[in-house]
Amino acid sequence: MEHLLAFISNNQQIIYIVILMIFVGIEVIGRVPSVLHTPLMSGANAIHGVVVIGAIIVMGKAETDNFLALGLGFIAVILGTLNVVGGFVVTDRMLEMFKGKKK
């Protein structure tokens, strides 16, 4: 029990962020029309590509002779970048189609 309480107070900041972000995430897209479900999903998909930052850190910290870490990290960077770049480009292409209607 004490362990748990200590954990909570040591990681207060992070716990606050998590809770607030859950509410922000829900509030922010609360009123999305069904037309935009797909682009929104695709955009959110690109945003979680932020995981690539973890891959970059892994890669950048690896010793130059640790080939397992380098190899896996390299693949992780490629996959993460695919997620980010592909995600944003696909979303942009979807939304490009919507733009035409206003002219």
């Binding site: 972000m21 859950i22 995430g25 829900i26 897209i29 929104l40 959110a44 945003i47 979680h48 932020v50």
Partner: peptide, 8 residues
Amino acid sequence: GGILVGAA
């Protein structure tokens, strides 16, 4: 970013 996408 992660939690935001998780919730949304």
